[in-house]
Amino acid sequence: MSRRSPSNDPVLAVRALRTQQAGGIDIYAFFVPGADLLRIAEISRVHRDSDGALHGFQRKEIRNHVQAIVEFLDQGSVLFPNAIILAISPRAMFTQSRGSKPDGDVKASDAGTLRIPIPKDGTKAAWIVDGQQRSIALAQVKDKGFPVPVVAFVSEDLSTHREQFILVNKARPLPPRLINELLPEVEADLPRDLAPRRIPSEIVNLLNTASDSPFRNLIRRLSDENPEAVIIDTALIKVVRNSINSPLGALAPYKASSSREADCLSMYRVLTAFWGAAREVFPDAWGRSPMESRLMHSAGIEAMGYLMDRIMSRALGANDLRRHAMDALLRIAPYCCWTKGRWPDIDRDWNDIQNLGRDIRLLSEQLARLDHVHSFARVA
Rank of each mutant, 00 (worst) to 15 (best):
A299N: 05
S89Q: 12
Y268H: 06
A235S: 15
F57K: 11
V379W: 03
N169R: 10
S77D: 03
T234E: 10
N245D: 13
R260W: 08
F376W: 07
V78C: 12
L17W: 03
L370D: 07
I166H: 11
K255M: 01
A188N: 07
I360L: 06
S246K: 06
G23A: 13
G34P: 03
A273W: 06
D74Q: 03
P191G: 13
R220V: 09
L329D: 07
K238L: 12
D263C: 05
I311Q: 08
S213H: 12
L73T: 02
L367D: 09
D74S: 11
S155V: 03
S293G: 12
V46A: 13
A377S: 10
F94K: 01
D103A: 15
V204E: 01
G249I: 04
A278G: 07
A171D: 03
R342G: 03
R342V: 06
N242K: 14
P191V: 13
D349A: 08
Q140H: 04
I199C: 00
L54W: 09
S375D: 13
D224S: 13
F31L: 09
S266L: 06
A87Y: 02
V11N: 09
I311P: 08
L236A: 06
D371H: 11
H55N: 10
Y335C: 03
A303I: 06
K124M: 01
E71V: 04
S50F: 06
R220N: 11
S257T: 15
A171H: 08
M304N: 14
G104C: 10
L206I: 02
R378P: 00
S246A: 14
K142D: 08
Q96G: 01
L363I: 12
Q354I: 04
R378A: 11
V281P: 01
N351H: 13
G300A: 13
S109M: 03
L54C: 02
D352G: 10
L367H: 07
I43Y: 06
L330I: 02
A273Y: 11
Q133H: 15
D233C: 10
I346T: 06
L158N: 03
P6K: 09
P200M: 02
G52F: 08
T234C: 02
A22S: 12
S89C: 10
N226S: 15
S44N: 08
L194C: 04
N319T: 11
I203L: 14
K107C: 02
R241M: 10
Y268S: 05
E261C: 05
C336Y: 04
L174K: 14
D74R: 05
M312P: 09
D371L: 07
N64V: 08
A273I: 09
R342H: 02
A368K: 14
H324M: 13
E228F: 09
E292Q: 15
M296L: 09
Q366D: 13
I353P: 01
A299M: 11
V204P: 03
E163H: 15
D233N: 13
S258C: 10
I237S: 04
C264S: 04
D105R: 01
E228A: 15
F153A: 04
R15F: 00
E61F: 01
R18I: 00
A53K: 14
S135Y: 04
P184W: 03
L206K: 09
G24H: 14
S109I: 00
S375F: 00
N245C: 05
F165C: 09
L330F: 09
K238M: 09
K142S: 08
A229C: 12
G145D: 10
D309G: 06
S223R: 13
A22L: 15
